[in-house]
Amino acid sequence: MSTDPISAPDVAPADCLFCRIVAGEIPASVVERGERVLAFRDIDPKAPTHVLVVPLEHHRDVTAIAAADPAALAELVALGSRIAAAEAGGPYRLVFNTGAEVGQSVFHVHGHVLAGRSFTWPPG
């Protein structure tokens, strides 16, 4: 286990919840699949539109995908924007939690696309 304060134990892709969803081993309410990303509805939505967008390949967090595959990160952001426009008319919040201390519970990068209502600031 890493002693880095924003890290959690590494998870092998075979044991990763989102890798198993990408592989079709676990069902999900898929919104759209792109060349490098998959979007599906959150099972515990926090807004009228709450969609998770994940890369098809396993990357631990947003920092890791930005370093390893910036094109996949760009596709993730673009898909999130298209979903928000289609489902909520455009305004949206895109959230990446990086580290258990700030709410990351699945260590496969995922953007939360939240839309369809007003949000307050600061979050949390």
Rank of each mutant, 00 (worst) to 15 (best):
F107T: 12
R36I: 05
V31I: 13
V11Y: 11
A14V: 15
A64R: 12
G24S: 09
F96A: 10
C16P: 02
S118L: 13
P13M: 10
G116T: 12
A85I: 09
G90F: 13
L56R: 11
S29R: 15
A67K: 15
P55T: 12
A12G: 01
P123S: 11
N97F: 04
E75R: 04
H50D: 06
D42I: 06
L79Y: 09
A78L: 15
T63H: 10
V77Y: 09
A8K: 10
S7P: 00
A39Q: 06
P27E: 15
G89S: 02
A66D: 11
L79I: 07
D69Y: 10
A86M: 10
H50T: 02
R117S: 12
A14I: 09
A12S: 13
A71N: 08
I21M: 07
V77R: 14
T49K: 00
V30R: 14
G34P: 03
A100Q: 13
I26A: 08
D10K: 13
A39P: 02
A115L: 02
H58G: 05
C19N: 06
R20E: 01
E35Y: 00
A115W: 03
A8C: 05
A64E: 11
A12E: 13
N97D: 13
L56W: 01
L94Y: 07
A72G: 13
A78H: 12
F40L: 05
P55R: 03
V54I: 14
A74S: 14
I6N: 15
T3W: 00
E57C: 00
P122M: 08
G24V: 03
E87Y: 00
A72I: 11
F107M: 07
A12C: 00
G116Y: 06
P91H: 05
H58T: 03
S81T: 13
V113S: 08
Y92E: 11
T63L: 12
P27D: 14
A72P: 06
A67P: 06
A74M: 03
A115Y: 03
C16Q: 01
I83C: 08
V30Y: 09
D4Y: 07
A23F: 05
F107N: 13
F96P: 04
H59D: 09
Y92N: 09
E75W: 01
P5Q: 12
A85F: 05
R36H: 12
D15I: 07
V54Q: 01
A8L: 06
A115H: 04
V54H: 02
V62D: 00
T3L: 15
K46W: 00
D69P: 06
V62N: 00
V11P: 11
E25C: 04
A64Q: 09
D15P: 01
M1H: 10
